[in-house]
Design a protein around this nucleic acid. Structure first.
Lengths: 353, 353
DNA sequence: CTAGCTATCCAAAGCGCTTTGAGTATTGTG
DNA sequence: CACAATACTCAAAGCGCTTTGGATAGCTAG
């Protein structure tokens, strides 16, 4: 069923039907009702391609997913996507995913613009001084960044968590427990979030009169084996740290694995603290297996002492902001900083050695 | 730059330019070269919407992601998507994601068809006797299933791993090590893959003259806390099993966590075996942190004894098959069964007690 | 009673592409 | 050399929608 058929069936022109359906004031309430009823009955749905061609607007948001060794389609990324796609769906938008090698990401954006493939994009994993921001501005493609580039010039929209503050708070917390030597298992240094977390960590150490030690600071993609290996190194360090601060619960899981292999109990023999993105596959299900109730401890739920901020919620909110900005009348550049919440779990305790 | 401008610039008609670019034989090789060069120089790219409108074809593949408590956008799902999206990108296709509640999935497919939003879809997480297959057939929407519905009637395309065989092999392997009591931490019973795995497990037990015991069989969404909780139950069982068979490395991680909390060493005090989807965030990075080389053991890489089949590769292959089928001339219904590979790790050993 | 509004509705153009049905050179054949 | 076949090329229609620029009818005001 298309517009032509529907309007023929109603004995109206395409113009009137289109206007009735799109809420224009030039059509009487009576006919609008009639049109809407008929459209519903006939299951009429306008073709997005035709609408796009006619208006130049498309209700599709693009995301490019990088395809390198640093495969970023990891649980963090996918939880974010889940949140964003729900926001899109509620607003009648769709999410378009395109895989591309990192060095080709610019070409993809150009393609998006030239073909008018999407109406906006969200930028993932911003680095310090990320080129993509300028590119998108010059292409006049609406966008929002999940994270920041480091330049706080108010010139582009973003949503980010207060990484600096989160790691400063975490480090303060550990110091408050008496820890003087705290290992840092961080994300990749070139990523803004990791750089800012490291700064927060430095800041807290400095205020406490502690010297940061590069020998117990690590930087890599936040995967489980990394947390494991880095922790083994930490344990082999000449002066063994009494606490470990991780950038992701994935690393922290690896860390705990290494510890238990060495017979160390987190929270007692050594403290482990982490940033917690509330990854969905680590949450208690609320369902549980057939013969068990499940609302107990969960790995990331209550076990880890952590700085918590849901990346799923961030995705949702990013979607909302983006859609508001491309639909909305306001021209303000939204920048939203979330504060991670300190959760006291069972993996930290007073410094022992 | 659009077709009209480009052809004006070349002094040719739109017809000729379009045909030159789309490889029609009616245009001389000389003009084709000239057109291609000009198109490249002008960075001309045809509008997908216009092409769609004109041809009725759209190079977009739809995926619907369910939004319930059983949040399926988990690492399994996202690794699959990563693989598929790469296959799409290479073929010039895009991936469209739409979030929907499970009970609304049918409505989404109807919407896809009615609006011609996508050219094909891939069906995730098939259940026994899944309704979606018949729906898609009746809607005449090309599709492929990742997994199976249980009906092996050759009437629809799918790609799946040999779940039955994988769990039969795994169980055989454990029995071969002397285990007589093997716990099963399975996926959700209504999912075909879980049902088939359970059958494989039953089959092997039966051949060995062993009685399956519902008290040590679990069924739930395959998340980490589930593996943890189920393992605690296993350990509390009247007659404690000597081995645990998990449906995902996520469960297995939870299982190992529970074991180490109880002071049990996997592979020595108790055996743990799992299906391994080769999830990307559990693989060794090959990069490693600044001060370490990383090619050591990885959680899922070499540690677990497992039945291994990459879900990322499956996504890639599904993408390829689907694109071939919608572009191709052949009309055969592709059905592809992969065999999971037995990997001997360090989490299994002879039965002890 | 009629000009001037307002409230409704409509025909047709246009978005950027593909494709049908012809038209014009160009070449080969008897 | 005439005619048919071949090789290129093109104008125009159409995909399904939105939107511009009227047109028509019903009312109010002068």
């Amino acid at each position: 069923m298309n517009l032509k058929e529907l309007s023929a069936q109603l004995g109206l022109s395409q113009t009137t039907v289109s206007r009735a359906l799109n809420g224009f004031p030039e059509v009487s309430e009576k006919t609008r009702k009639r049109v809407e009823a008929a459209a519903r009955a006939a299951k009429y749905r306008p073709s997005p391609s035709a609408a796009h061609l006619a208006t130049g607007k498309t209700r599709v948001i693009g995301h490019v997913i990088p395809t390198t060794q640093h495969r970023m389609i990891n649980p963090h990324f996918s939880d974010f996507l889940a949140g964003a796609s729900e926001a899109y769906a509620e607003a009648g938008y769709d999410m378009l995913l395109r895989a591309a090698e990192v060095e080709n990401e610019a070409a993809v954006y150009e393609d998006f613009v030239e073909r008018k493939r999407v109406g906006a994009v969200v930028v993932h994993g911003p680095k310090l001084g990320d080129h993509r921001i300028e590119l998108l501005k010059s292409l006049r493609m609406p966008f929002i960044v999940h994270g920041r580039t480091g330049e706080e010039d108010g010139s582009y929209p973003w949503l980010d968590v207060n990484n600096h503050g989160a790691f400063e708070t975490a480090t303060d917390y550990l110091i408050g427990l008496g820890h003087r030597r705290i290992a840092l298992i961080n994300g990749l240094d070139e990523m803004t979030f990791a750089a800012q977390r490291k700064e927060g960590y430095y800041h807290a150490l400095e205020r406490a009169g502690l010297e940061p030690d590069p020998a117990i600071m690590f930087s890599a993609d936040m995967v489980e084996p990394y947390g494991y290996e880095a922790t083994l190194e930490v344990l082999a360090a000449p002066r063994k740290p009494t606490a470990i601060l991780c950038a992701s619960v994935l690393c922290a899981m690896g860390s705990v694995r290494a510890l238990s292999e060495k017979g160390l109990r987190p929270g007692q023999d050594i403290s482990v603290m982490t940033f917690d993105d509330v990854l969905s596959f680590l949450q208690p299900t609320g369902h549980g297996p057939v013969n068990s109730d499940f609302m107990g401890s969960a790995f990331s739920g209550s076990a880890f002492t952590s700085m918590r901020s849901s990346i799923y919620d961030a995705g949702r909110r990013v979607g909302e902001i983006l859609i508001n900005s491309i639909e909305g009348t306001t021209n303000i550049i939204e920048q939203e900083e979330w504060t991670a919440e300190l959760i006291e779990g069972r993996t930290t305790g007073p410094a022992t050695s």
